[in-house]
């Protein structure tokens, strides 16, 4: 985050009855982690800014007598006297609602069923959606592509119930470098990426893979290697040899 905490002093916070001391601006999620408390989440990832879209990490935050619901992934702890309950009845009700809705949307996604079971939910009461639908619209792929890869090849299309993930105008994106980070980060493995005969297919585009002159294996899309090489200003033959062989050589 761009904002720097002005004070380095630590803040005391109570999570599920346990005390944690954290630096200001630490998120509830991070603070809980220091105590070994894991809060379920679908859309957050250490590599990107918390997005707060899936709402699975909703927890109950108490300050004095006032209680409110916040998402653990992006709530910054900035003051003393906060008491957080990650599994209060109200927090579990919110989490159940979210998971029940997502299960209706994506009936065949295992991670949802596992998470739901953890909060005592066996199946969704809502009308089932398309069995083939696996995207929960957590946005992780978009955020990885934007913040980590810097390619901005995919984004959100339409709004509300029609929202989906796609390339601009759902056409082949020339900004995509075929790196596959989106597919790798996806919590429900819904982004299709295949490799055959030295060609990787993703987002309806084909990417030629580079062949390692040492081991003869295909190792990464040429577009990706070129983009990274130019970004960091590396010599032309920097990526000539695959990562494994380069490691061996060193």
């Amino acid at each position: 985050m761009s904002h720097q905490a002005t004070t380095a002093s630590e803040i005391k916070v109570l999570i599920d009855g346990q005390e944690a001391r954290v630096k200001p601006e630490t998120t509830i999620f991070q603070a809980a982690k220091t105590l070994g408390i894991s809060i379920p989440t679908l859309c957050s990832h250490p590599a990107v800014e918390p997005y707060g879209a899936c709402r699975v990490c909703t927890v109950e935050l108490k300050r004095g007598k006032r209680s409110r619901m916040v998402t653990a992934c992006n709530y910054p702890i900035r003051e003393e006297g906060l008491e957080i309950q990650t599994r209060s009845e109200r927090a579990l009700r919110a989490r159940r609602l979210v998971l029940e809705l997502l299960m209706a949307r994506c009936p065949e996604v295992k991670i949802l069923r596992d998470m739901a079971q953890e909060v005592g939910l066996e199946k969704s009461r809502y009308p089932k959606g398309d069995d083939k639908e696996r995207c929960i619209l957590c946005g992780l792929c978009v955020n990885i592509c934007n913040q980590v890869v810097g390619a901005n090849a995919i984004g959100f299309v339409s709004r509300g119930v029609d929202r989906k993930i796609g390339t601009p105008f759902l056409e082949n994106s020339m900004d995509c470098i075929g790196c596959g980070a989106c597919a790798f980060a996806c919590p429900t493995q819904c982004i299709s990426m295949t490799e055959k005969d030295g060609v990787r297919k993703i987002w309806d585009r084909e990417f030629k893979l580079a062949v390692c002159p040492v081991c003869g294996n295909y190792y990464a899309p040429i577009d990706q290697l070129e983009t990274i090489r130019k970004q960091v200003n590396l010599p032309p033959d920097h990526f000539k040899v695959c990562f494994t062989c380069r490691g061996l050589k060193l």
């Binding site: 707060g52 879209a53 899936c54 709402r55 699975v56 919110a94 609602l97 979210v98 809705l101 997502l102 209706a104 949307r105 809502y126 009308p127 929960i136 619209l137 946005g139 959100f156 339409s158 709004r159 509300g160 119930v161 029609d162 929202r163």
Partner: peptide, 21 residues
């Protein structure tokens, strides 16, 4: 509201849809 929800968060996007159903 179903039409105007941005669709970012699950409860609004999916919840309104199911309540509407």
């Amino acid at each position: 509201l179903k039409d105007e929800s941005c669709g970012k968060c699950t409860p609004c996007r999916e919840g309104i849809k199911q309540m509407l159903a």
